[in-house]
């Protein structure tokens, strides 16, 4: 065990100097990319994901067209340079397909798909750097890309990874921690407290589960707040650059 990294030392610090419940730096970039209708690049520490959203547009295949709602298509691309071992995965890889499916299922109940019948929303996820918490970063970036694309969504979805070291839960795991600890990824809608995704690929003692869920839910609210601030700032900037052409209406109940 001597060569192993100490996950949580006696002083209560983790291998990268964070405390138990501390999240990594969140970087959000909402610059438009090429011809995409909406895009967002999100970093949680060293994990970086770029998401481009296209649509709603005509479905590529007739069979994908749904008469009463939009079809959501998620494609995931893992850059070979995103990990230390440069391995090229092709798009047909079963793990990647499952990963894409879990992103799609996270957003299906959140996007108001019934507003866009017979059309398709394409979500292209590019994983540029991996250092743990890849799924959480993908989900957070997808939320932001959808919002910048102007696609109607019910609310922000925020995801956080939570692991447990003996009895102490840890938030936002790095690659080292992820490979050593049982962990789960939780995507929530913080305002309503609804959970849209929980995944776990490791074994975990049932007694630890509840505490981890609670913690991840609270952390989700913090992440969502961060995302809201980023969107608000961008919207304000855009409105300002339009010279306040759209006068927002003041609303009061008395009127």
């Amino acid at each position: 065990m001597g060569s192993r990294v100490e996950i949580l030392n006696d002083g209560g610090y983790r291998s990268d100097g964070r405390r138990q419940y501390e999240l990594r730096d969140i970087l959000i970039d909402l610059t438009p990319q090429g011809s995409a209708d909406g895009s967002a690049q999100v970093s949680h520490g060293l994990t970086t994901v770029l998401v481009n959203v296209f649509g709603p547009r005509e479905p590529r295949l007739r069979s994908q067209s749904l008469h009463d709602r939009a079809n959501i298509n998620v494609e995931v691309l893992i850059a070979p340079f995103s990990t230390s071992e440069h391995r090229k995965r092709n798009r047909g890889d079963k793990r990647i397909l499952e990963f894409a499916a879990s992103i799609r299922e996270t957003f299906e109940p959140v996007i108001l798909t019934n507003l866009y019948p017979r059309s398709q929303i394409d979500i292209y996820v590019q994983i540029l750097q991996q250092d743990g918490g890849v799924l959480q970063t993908c989900i957070n970036a997808t939320t932001l890309a959808l919002v910048t694309a102007g696609i109607a969504v019910k609310d922000y979805v925020a995801a956080v990874t939570c692991g447990v070291h003996s009895t102490s839960p840890l938030l936002d795991l790095t690659n080292i921690e992820e490979s050593d600890l049982p962990h789960l990824t939780l995507a929530t809608i913080p305002r309503t407290g609804k959970v849209t995704l929980v995944t776990m690929e490791t074994r975990l003692h049932i007694d630890r589960f509840e505490a981890m869920m609670r913690l991840a839910k609270d952390a989700g609210a913090v992440v969502a707040q961060e995302m809201k601030v980023a969107v608000k700032t961008r919207t304000e900037d855009l409105v300002k650059s339009m010279g306040g052409a759209t006068e927002g209406a003041k609303l009061t109940e008395e009127e």
Binding site: L112, V147, T148, K154, K232, G248, A249
Partner: peptide, 24 residues
């Protein structure tokens, strides 16, 4: 359901999505 500005016509409230470059 979108990020943008609140618009009101009488008792109808809508939100106009503000998107990408140059806003429009």
């Amino acid at each position: 359901s979108v990020a943008g500005t609140i618009e009101r016509v009488n008792r109808l409230v809508s939100v106009k999505a503000i998107r990408a470059r140059k806003g429009i």
